[in-house]
């Protein structure tokens, strides 16, 4: 995994060199790579197929992709499948005949688009997968190492709910078949299985990351286990409900909530208002930068599609009460 990270960084550096490395030349002299670079990008087409728009993650990624496209003069468009896998599949199917240069796709699950993505690559379209990947590797993947994410969250909760507490932990998950949620549970297990002092009282799915559901589950569990020690939340937007339940039960500060997400303003607000005490961010602006670099690399790639396959796991950042002052929580206005 470290090797992969290194490769990713190398690619990123290469791209950086290409984009800005010449800025410090002293004497006036035209860069031979420059014209070709810009001409090459003109008229290229990148299409983003997200599972949804309208939430901080996708809006953040999309904003940065769109900004780079505007700057470099290639076309960028969004085909929102709006939480509908069938619509997403339909989109990719028609994209295969439309032949854009790059498709950036956020997979709803591990398998649904796999066959289509392979088909698209065969048809000569670079496919970059974002945050949730299928079991087919394509030109690139950008996203969090979710297992690591789970491990980080679990470690903190275990540390907090060790001896002297009830050790009772509630686990909230996403849709059961979502790989994101499944990998995260794997990460939890990795740690929790080694921690006999912690007792998982309930593992419940919040459906499609519904905060209302998270709230009602938390309420019921708190009712049964007033001495609940920790909650492993699944996503900041969902855990708003979890936090509300904890607050209503008058247990703010007594129940340790760990959440995760893209590190948007909600993350900071949550820490500051005590909604959660621990937060693992997969840094959307950072991911977007990786993504943009992979897009550029793909657009310049002269080799047959599928020759190189790059995975860029996002470095994870931990937010808590102590470091929150130093953390940058992005909003759509501040994202660069």
């Amino acid at each position: 995994m470290i090797g992969l990270k290194k490769i990713g960084m190398a690619v990123a550096m290469a791209a950086t060199v290409l984009t800005g490395g010449i800025a410090h030349a002293q004497n006036s002299m035209s860069d031979p790579a420059r014209a070709g670079y810009y001409d090459n990008l003109k008229g290229k087409r990148v299409v983003f197929v997200p599972v949804f728009m309208g939430l901080d993650l996708t809006e953040g990624w999309s904003k940065m992709m769109s900004r780079q496209a505007d700057k470099l003069g290639y076309k960028y468009e969004v085909r929102n499948s709006n939480f509908n896998t069938a619509a997403g599949a339909q989109t990719i199917t028609s994209l295969i005949t439309e032949k854009p240069d790059v498709i950036v796709v956020q997979n709803p699950d591990v398998q649904s688009y796999a066959k289509l993505l392979a088909k698209a690559e065969k048809a000569g379209i670079h496919v970059i997968q974002l945050n949730m990947k299928t079991n087919v590797l394509t030109t690139g993947f950008v996203g969090a190492d979710v297992e690591e994410l789970g491990e980080l969250q679990a470690k903190e909760v275990v540390a907090h709910c060790g001896s002297g507490t009830s050790g009772k932990v509630l686990v909230l998950a996403g849709p059961p078949s979502s790989p994101f949620s499944a990998y995260m549970l794997k990460g939890y297990e990795n740690i929790l299985n080694k921690s006999p002092e912690v007792k998982v009282v309930s593992v419940q799915s919040t459906g499609d990351y519904e905060s209302a559901k998270a709230k009602s589950i938390t309420q019921v569990v708190l009712q049964q286990h007033p001495d609940l020690c920790g909650v492993l939340g699944v996503w900041d937007n969902t855990d708003v409900g979890t936090a509300a339940a904890v607050k209503e039960a008058g247990k703010s500060g007594q129940v340790f909530v760990s959440s995760s997400g893209g590190g948007g303003e909600l993350a900071c607000k949550g820490i500051e208002e005590g909604m959660w005490q621990h937060y693992v961010s997969y840094d959307v602006p950072g991911q977007a930068r990786d993504l943009n670099n992979l897009i550029l690399a793909a657009l310049q790639d002269k080799n047959p599609v599928g020759t190189t396959k790059t995975i860029l796991y996002t470095p994870l950042v931990i937010y808590n009460k102590d470091n929150i002052k130093n953390q940058f929580c992005w909003t759509l206005d501040t994202i660069r």
Partner: peptide
């Protein structure tokens, strides 16, 4: 046969 997808939301809203 076309998609080989055992996706969780297969058929949702169909």
């Amino acid at each position: 046969s076309r998609l080989a997808s055992p996706g969780a939301d297969t058929g949702k809203g169909l």
